[in-house]
Design a protein around this nucleic acid. Structure first.
Length: 839
DNA sequence: CGGACGAGGATTTTT
DNA sequence: TCCTCGTCCG
C-alpha cells in the first residue's frame, strides 16, 4: 500500500483512492480535509497522473500555497510545481491573459480592485448627473457584483423585465444604465474587476467552444476546495470544465458556508448529486481537532438548521471542559472580564498567548478589547483592517506601474497625474478628458500623442503636462532596461513619491516609506523566485531547456492585486493573542477560543435577520466560531453595549440557549424564551425616554439607522438568473448530466446587494501603528504607564516628551511637549501614544 | 493646493 | 464614537 494512505482513517482513505469519477467529499470541521485533498492529489500523481492535467481550485492563495507545499513534501517539488493549483481568480487570470484577446482585452489588462471599481463607479454616477445619495456607489457596486456572479450581463439585465421593474420600484431606475456604462468603461480602460475574471471565463467558454474543449481536455481532473463557498459563476465554470470527463471532486462543509452575502451558494454543495448523479459521496465525520464537548455543543446548535446535508460529526478525543459563559453588564466590562479570563487561563494552563483567539462578529468590537489588553499588558495582534496593498502609498506606486503597463488605464492616470502635486488641476484634466473623448483615446494616449494646443492647453499647464509625459515615458524606458527592483526604485524616486513622504516627517509618512520599501522588496523577492524556477510549458508541463521565466512587471502587478491581507506573511511569529472576526477565523484552530458579543442583533446580526436563510447563515457562522477551539471555548455577552455613541440594551444571543445546556457552564439564565426582566425594564425606560426626546428633536433616534440598514434589495422573482435563461452565458443545452436537471430547481440567485456593503478603510498604516502600540503598551503596563520625561510619539502630532501624567479614574491624562506642534494634553485612552523609549 | 471643518456613515469580505 | 470624504476658504 502506498505510504500516502498509511495514516488515514477508513473514510479518508476511500476519499483519496477513488479519484476516477465525480466525488463529493463532505468534510466536517477538523476532519482532516486539507490532508485528504493533498493526499488525493499526491496519490493521483503517484498513480501516474500528469500534474498539468490536474486543476485544483481554492479560495485563498494561502490555501493553495499550503497544499502545494504539502504535496511537494509528499511527492516531489517538481510535480507539485506543475500542478494547476491556485485560486479561482489566479488560475482564470492566467487563462485570460492568454485568451483574453478573443474577448477584446489586451493581454496586459489591468485588474481593478474594489476601490478602483468604486472610484470608477462614482465618476460614472457623477457624469450621468445622478445623485450618489440615491445611487450609493457601494450598493450599486454590490448589485453589479451579484449580477456578474449570477452571469447576468448588462444586456441580459435590461432584457429582464423583472429586474428592471424591481429597480424602478427601488427608485434606482437608472441602475442598468450605470451597470452598462461601468462595463463599457472597464473594457475601454482595458481592465477587469474581480468578478469579470469569472464572468469572462464563462463568456469565453460559451462563445469559443474550441477554447473550452482545449481546457476540458487538459484538465482531466478538477478539484475544488471549499465548494460550499462557490458562487453561480464559479459553479458554471466547474460544470463546464468537468463536462467532458466528469472527474470532478468537490470538497466542503455545508455547515461552514458563511459567504452568501458575497454570492456564495450553499445549494451548490447541497445539490451536487443533482449535477452528478453518479457521484460518490465521502463523509469525513470524525473531528480530530476538538474535544467532545465542543463538537457536541456545536452539533446541538447546527442541528437547528434545516438546509443541511446529512452528516454527523463526532470527536473521539477528550471530553474536555464545559463551555464557560460569561455575562457582563457593559461592553467595557465584557472586555475586562475576558481579558482577565485569558490572562488567568494562560497563567494556569501554561499555554502561550498565541494559543488564544478572540473572535467577534464585527470589526467594530475589537476596540474595547484592545484597550483592555493594553491596560493589562497582554500582547495581541489584530487581523483585518486595511490590507497592505490597499494602502494609499502602495496604490499610488502601483498606479504608476499600471499606467506604464496599460496605457488605457484612465483610473491610474487620474490617480497619479497630479500626485505628487505637480500643479495639474481639475481644469487641465477636464480639457484632456474631453479631447481624449472626442479623439476616442485614453487619457494617456491623448496626452502623449495630441498637440497640447488641440486640447486647449497652453503656457504653464502645457509645460506641466509635458513634464509628466516625459516622466512616464522615461519610466517606461527604464522598465525595458532595468531589472524589476531597480525599476521600482526608479518609479518611487523619480515620481517624487518617496521625496514627498520624506519631507513630511510624521510617523505616518515614515510608515508609508517603510511600506514602499517593503513593496520594492517584494518585487525583488518575486524576481528572484521566478528566476530560480525552471520554465514549464503549460501545455505539456515539459521543462523548457535552459530557460527560466523572466520576471515581468505585468505578472508581478497582477499577482499583487490578487493578494489579500490573509496572505500576508507574518513578519515575526510572535507570542500574541489573536483578535479577528469569525469570518477571518475560518480554517484556523486555537487551543482556546473566546467568542464575544453573543447578543441578539449582533450575533446573530440584525442585518442578516430578514429571513430564515440569513439566520441559518449566522448559525453556521457561530458553528464555525465554536469549532475553531481545540481544548476549550469561552462565550460572552453583555447586557448593554455602546453603539455609535449611544447605549443599547441587549438580549443574550439565541445561540447561547440553542446549545444543549449540558455542555455549558453558565451560572445564570440565558434568556431562552423569556425576557430578562431587569434588562427589559431598563430597555422600556430607555425606549420611552428616546421616544420622548426624539419627538422633540424630530430626528427619531436610532430609527433612521435601523430603517436604512433594514432596507434590502428584494429578489425580482422566485427564479434564478440561470434558470430563467436571462444570462447569455447560459443559453446552451448542457450535457445530460447537468443542464436541464439543474434548472428545474428554483434557485435563489437574485442579485441581492447589501446596503452599505463595501470595503472599510481604516486609517493608513493602522496595522503597523497598532502592532507597535501593543508592544509599547505591554512595556508600559509593567512600568505603570507613562512617566515624565518619556519620549513618545503620536499618530498625527509626531514625537514629543511627556511633561506631566495625571491619573483620574481610569482615564490617564498626559501632557506632552511635541517637537513640532507644541504642548498638548491628551487622554491616553484616545491618544494612542507610542513610547519611543528603549527601542 | 492644502488645511479646516462639518456631514454622514459605520456587518461579515476568500478575490 | 470615530473615521472618511467632500466642500469651502485662504
Amino acid at each position: 500500500m502506498s505510504q500516502l494512505l498509511e495514516n488515514l482513517n477508513e473514510a479518508q482513505r476511500a476519499a483519496v483512492v477513488n479519484y476516477d469519477g465525480p466525488s463529493l467529499i463532505v468534510a466536517g470541521a477538523g476532519s482532516g480535509k486539507t490532508r485528504v485533498l493533498t493526499s488525493r492529489i499526491a496519490y493521483m500523481l503517484e498513480q501516474g497522473v500528469e500534474p498539468w492535467r490536474i486543476l485544483a481550485l481554492t479560495f485563498t492563495n494561502k490555501a493553495a500555497a499550503e497544499m502545494r507545499e504539502r504535496i511537494a513534501a509528499m511527492v516531489s517539488p517538481e510535480k507539485s510545481q506543475r500542478l494547476w493549483m491556485g485560486t479561482f481568480h489566479s488560475i482564470f487570470l492566467r487563462i485570460l491573459r492568454v485568451e483574453g484577446d478573443k474577448l477584446g482585452y489586451p493581454s496586459t489588462f489591468t485588474i481593478y480592485d474594489t476601490a478602483d471599481s468604486r472610484n470608477l463607479l462614482k465618476s460614472i454616477i457623477r457624469e450621468m448627473n445622478l445623485s450618489d445619495d440615491t445611487y450609493k456607489p457601494n450598493a450599486i457596486l454590490a448589485r453589479i457584483s451579484l449580477a456578474k456572479n449570477s452571469l447576468v450581463t448588462p444586456e441580459a439585465y435590461q432584457a429582464n423585465t423583472g429586474y428592471v421593474a424591481e429597480d424602478r420600484q427601488r427608485k434606482i431606475p437608472e441602475f442598468s444604465e450605470i451597470y452598462k456604462a461601468y462595463v463599457r468603461r472597464c473594457k475601454e480602460n482595458g481592465a477587469m474587476d474581480f468578478d469579470d475574471m469569472l464572468l469572462n471565463i464563462n463568456i469565453l467558454f460559451r462563445d469559443f467552444p474550441d477554447v473550452l474543449r482545449k481546457y476540458q481536455e487538459r484538465f482531466a481532473y478538477v478539484l475544488v476546495d471549499e465548494y460550499q463557498d462557490t458562487n453561480y459563476a464559479q459553479y458554471i465554470i466547474i460544470r463546464r470544465l468537468a463536462q467532458l470527463h466528469s472527474r470532478v471532486c468537490v470538497v466542503g462543509d455545508d455547515a461552514q458556508s458563511i459567504y452568501s452575502f458575497r454570492g456564495a451558494k450553499i445549494e451548490n454543495i447541497l445539490r451536487f448529486r443533482n449535477d452528478f448523479p453518479t457521484a460518490r459521496i465521502f463523509k469525513l465525520e470524525q473531528n480530530y481537532r476538538s474535544t467532545q464537548t465542543i463538537v457536541n455543543a456545536a452539533n446541538s446548535v447546527i442541528e437547528k438548521n434545516r438546509n443541511r446535508l446529512d452528516k454527523v460529526s463526532f470527536s473521539a478525543g477528550k471530553v474536555g471542559e464545559k463551555i464557560k459563559v460569561i455575562k457582563a453588564y457593559t461592553d467595557q466590562e465584557e472586555a475586562s472580564m475576558i481579558a482577565d479570563e485569558i490572562r488567568n487561563r494562560v497563567r494556569t494552563s501554561g499555554a502561550d498567548w498565541i494559543d488564544v483567539a478572540l473572535l467577534y462578529r464585527t470589526n467594530m468590537q475589537s476596540r474595547v478589547f484592545e484597550e483592555a489588553f493594553r491596560r493589562r499588558g497582554i500582547p495581541y495582534r489584530i487581523y483585518g483592517g486595511t490590507s497592505f496593498y490597499q494602502r494609499k502609498e502602495i496604490k499610488d506606486v502601483l498606479a504608476y506601474m499600471n499606467l506604464i503597463v496599460n496605457p488605457r488605464n484612465d483610473e491610474a492616470f487620474r490617480r497619479i497625474v497630479n500626485y505628487p502635486s505637480r500643479g495639474i488641476g481639475d481644469v487641465t484634466i477636464g480639457r484632456i478628458a474631453s479631447a481624449a473623448e472626442s479623439a476616442k483615446l485614453s487619457l494617456w494616449e491623448a496626452v502623449s500623442t495630441l498637440d497640447p494646443e488641440v486640447m486647449g492647453l497652453k503656457g504653464a499647464a502645457a509645460n506641466k503636462i509635458n513634464e509628466f509625459t516625459k516622466l512616464i515615458r522615461s519610466l517606461a524606458e527604464a522598465r525595458e532596461s532595468m531589472d524589476l527592483y531597480e525599476f521600482g526604485l526608479e518609479v518611487v524616486t523619480r515620481s517624487g513619491i518617496i521625496g514627498s513622504y520624506k519631507l513630511e516627517q510624521t510617523p505616518e509618512a515614515q510608515s508609508a516609506v517603510e511600506n514602499i520599501e517593503e513593496l520594492l522588496n517584494s518585487m525583488q523577492h518575486y524576481a528572484e523566485q521566478v528566476e530560480s524556477e525552471p520554465l514549464y510549458d503549460p501545455e505539456t508541463g515539459e521543462t523548457v531547456e535552459g530557460a527560466t521565466a523572466s520576471p515581468s512587471l505585468i505578472d508581478w502587478l497582477q499577482s499583487v492585486t490578487l493578494l489579500t491581507d490573509m496572505d500576508e506573511e507574518e513578519a515575526e511569529e510572535r507570542d500574541r493573542v489573536t483578535l479577528m472576526t469569525v469570518h477571518a477565523a475560518k480554517g484556523l484552530e486555537y487551543r482556546y477560543v473566546f467568542i464575544v458579543g453573543l447578543e441578539e442583533n449582533l450575533f446573530p446580526s440584525l442585518m442578516s435577520m430578514d429571513g430564515a436563510e440569513g439566520l441559518e447563515e449566522e448559525r453556521r457562522l457561530f458553528y464555525v466560531a465554536l469549532t475553531r477551539a481545540k481544548e476549550a471555548a469561552v462565550l460572552s455577552f453583555s447586557e448593554t453595549r455602546f453603539k455609535w455613541g449611544s447605549m443599547d440594551f441587549c438580549k443574550p444571543s439565541r445561540f447561547l440557549s440553542e446549545i444543549d445546556p449540558k455542555y455549558l457552564d453558565a451560572a445564570f439564565d440565558l434568556g431562552g424564551e423569556e425576557e430578562n426582566p431587569v434588562a427589559a425594564r431598563l430597555k422600556r425606560n430607555y425606549d420611552d425616554h428616546n421616544a420622548r426626546s426624539s419627538s422633540n428633536d424630530g430626528y427619531g433616534g436610532g430609527a433612521i439607522i435601523r430603517g436604512e440598514a433594514a432596507r434590502r434589495f428584494r429578489p425580482a422573482g422566485g427564479q434564478s438568473a440561470g434558470a430563467r435563461g436571462g444570462s447569455p452565458a447560459e443559453r446552451e443545452g448542457g450535457s445530460p448530466a447537468f443542464g436541464a436537471r439543474r434548472s428545474e430547481r428554483p434557485e435563489v440567485v437574485e442579485p441581492k446587494p447589501q446596503v452599505g456593503a463595501g470595503t472599510r478603510f481604516r486609517s493608513m498604516g493602522s496595522r503597523v501603528v497598532r502592532q507597535e502600540e501593543a508592544d509599547a503598551v505591554s512595556r508600559e503596563a509593567v512600568t505603570g504607564g507613562f512617566f515624565v520625561g518619556q519620549r513618545v510619539a503620536h499618530a498625527s502630532f509626531g514625537a514629543g516628551t511627556v511633561l506631566a501624567v495625571e491619573q483620574s479614574q481610569g482615564d490617564n491624562k498626559v501632557t506632552v511637549q511635541f517637537d513640532v506642534v507644541g504642548k498638548k494634553t491628551l487622554l491616553c485612552k484616545y491618544a494612542k501614544l507610542v513610547s519611543l523609549e528603549g527601542r
